[in-house]
Simulated assay, not measured.
Amino acid sequence: MFLSIGEVLIDMITESDSLYNATVFQKFFGGSPANIAINVARQGIESHLLSTIGKDPFGKFIEDFLLKNNVKIDYLVEREDIYTDIVFVNKSKKTPEFKAYRNASLKLEIPDNLDLEKIRIIHISSWAVSETKQFEKIYELVKEAKKKNILIGFDPNYRKILWNNKYSIIDVLKVLGPYIDISKPSFDDAENIFGKDTIKNYIKYFEENGIKNIIFTLGKDGALIHNKKYEENIPTFATKVIDVTGAGDAVWSGIYTGLLNDLNIIESTKLGLAFAAEKLKYIGAITPIEHWEILKDKYEI
């Protein structure tokens, strides 16, 4: 069983090259942890989302979309006193411009009925730990999860503008790092956390914080896997790029799908890049991705 913790929201995506020039937006389901939960559920894996929404039309849209895609919503909290998050994004083949209007994602709760017994993997976004009380609750949850040998994945997609935590992102990494089995930074993520530096140093910084497996995504150059035993470059499978929105989520989804089906970390990362190659052909974060066994054969993983 898979549990994804963090934001679920509405992406308003424009065809314009900038938000300033935008006049028309299309509504899409969004939020990295929610996208991952859906991608994993579509692979036939029991997938749960722990998140919060407002009791409003956007929240209702999100709830229906999750149920339609077979994501369990036992841990999705709906509240009348908050509004569902909305993020405005420009369609881009590079890192997109965005503006987030947050409320629900700053009110994350750990439900009393959360059952860790059957969970094999927990995914946590940096948004989920971007508020002080949420971080403290998630830290306690992670400690309990590790007692049960649950694998922990942490997405270091930190952006200063979204941070509402009295602890810095460096402080959070120091505390959570020893419990994290997998982290998947990009150059943008690493630069936002540590400032401008080399990939070699970025990897060293993540490793010094106790993170066991670092999967550094390199865009058109694929990914670099690093742990204490080895370091390996994996080339991209992408041949067509229409929209990069959700590509990182697709990589995460393939990694988790592989691990939950007993592939090793290298095979799972290759599967993640295969998921991303399929996603890049479409607009929006949630797109058609074939069954993992078909992609495993297709991309000769």
Rank of each mutant, 00 (worst) to 15 (best):
F98S: 06
D155P: 01
L263G: 03
A34Q: 14
E131T: 10
F275P: 02
T132I: 06
A223N: 04
V142F: 09
D11V: 05
A104T: 07
L151R: 11
L141N: 12
T217D: 04
V241S: 08
I86V: 15
V89E: 11
I301C: 04
S105V: 07
K196W: 00
L19I: 05
S18K: 09
P178L: 07
Y75S: 01
L106D: 08
P156M: 03
K55R: 11
N70C: 07
W292M: 11
T239K: 12
L50V: 01
L67K: 15
P178A: 02
V244H: 09
F275W: 13
G222N: 10
S130E: 05
A104K: 00
N35P: 10
E208T: 10
H48F: 14
K107N: 14
F61S: 06
Q26L: 08
I289P: 09
K118F: 07
K107G: 10
M12A: 08
L280G: 03
V8W: 05
I152H: 05
I225R: 04
S125L: 06
S105K: 07
A274M: 07
F65A: 00
T245F: 11
F187I: 11
Y205P: 07
K143F: 14
Y20N: 14
D115W: 02
E300M: 12
D155G: 03
A145Q: 13
E78L: 03
K220W: 07
E97F: 06
S92F: 14
I38M: 11
T14N: 01
Y167P: 00
I150R: 04
P57H: 02
I242G: 05
A37P: 11
I152G: 15
V129I: 15
G258W: 08
P235L: 14
K160L: 15
Y230F: 15
R159M: 05
I110Q: 11
N164P: 01
N264G: 02
K279N: 14
F194A: 07
T236P: 06
A22K: 00
K200R: 12
D155T: 00
N103S: 06
D262V: 02
T287S: 13
L280K: 04
I289V: 11
F88A: 05
V251F: 10
I121T: 09
L76W: 04
N165I: 00
F135M: 00
H291K: 14
R120W: 03
E144R: 15
N149L: 09
M12V: 05
Y83H: 13
A285W: 13
L141G: 07
N90P: 10
N261R: 12
